[in-house]
Simulated scan of single mutants.
Amino acid sequence: MGRTADICDEYGNEVFVANEPFLSHGPARSFEGPIETVRVFEDNVLVEQALGDIPAGSILVVDGGGSSRRALLGDNLAEIAVNRGLAGIIVNGAIRDSDELREMDVRVFSRFTNPRKSVKEGRGERSIPVDFADVTWTPGDYVYADSDGIVLLPAKS
């Protein structure tokens, strides 16, 4: 695992740093891997679907529009990530069950916590570029995340 500071030093202007504060949940100190994306708003049906079928070792990046009103992930969905061997989850929005997540073998970064569950309408998009935290997150790009932050290295064309 490359440390985010070392990745920034090595790749310079090729790497992008997520420039928003994120909360860290889970015992893992760091993660890295290729990303898959979901764009939703207060609805986590596509989040659950993605967790169930993206490749092991991947990082799910969830653009929840930055909403703090409803959690897009909790311990039940995080358990899917653990069982499938996903590297981590980044949520531009809220999660819940944060105490339980701290004990699970997956690291989750989120903008907020909120105990209110999401709606279940199945609205959103998958496997598309999403923009938040001054970064464009494109499926197949590579993320490094640790206590210093989250950095993205675009895939080579």
Rank of each mutant, 00 (worst) to 15 (best):
A5L: 05
D9W: 01
D9P: 00
E10V: 02
Y11R: 03
N13P: 01
N13C: 02
N13R: 06
V17N: 03
A18N: 02
N19P: 00
N19G: 08
P21M: 09
P21K: 15
P21A: 12
F22G: 10
F22V: 09
H25M: 07
G26R: 05
P27K: 14
P27M: 08
A28H: 15
V38W: 00
V38G: 04
V38Y: 01
R39H: 06
V40H: 04
V40E: 02
F41A: 07
E42V: 04
E42M: 12
D43T: 05
D43H: 06
D43R: 08
V45T: 14
V45Y: 05
L46E: 09
E48H: 07
Q49H: 10
Q49I: 11
Q49G: 09
A50V: 03
L51H: 13
D53T: 15
I54C: 15
G57A: 15
G57K: 15
I59A: 15
L60Q: 14
L60F: 09
L60A: 14
V61L: 11
V62H: 08
G64F: 02
G66E: 01
G66R: 08
S68H: 12
A71T: 08
L72T: 09
L73D: 04
N76E: 10
A78I: 00
E79L: 07
E79M: 07
A81C: 11
V82W: 06
N83Q: 13
N83Y: 00
R84W: 07
G88F: 00
G88E: 03
I89P: 14
V91I: 14
V91F: 06
N92R: 10
A94I: 07
R96A: 13
D97W: 00
S98D: 13
R102D: 14
R102V: 00
E103F: 02
M104H: 04
V106G: 14
V106C: 12
V106I: 15
R107S: 15
R107C: 15
S110K: 06
S110W: 01
S110L: 03
R111G: 04
T113I: 12
P115W: 01
R116F: 03
K117V: 13
K117Y: 12
S118H: 04
G122D: 01
G124Y: 00
R126M: 12
S127M: 10
I128E: 03
I128M: 05
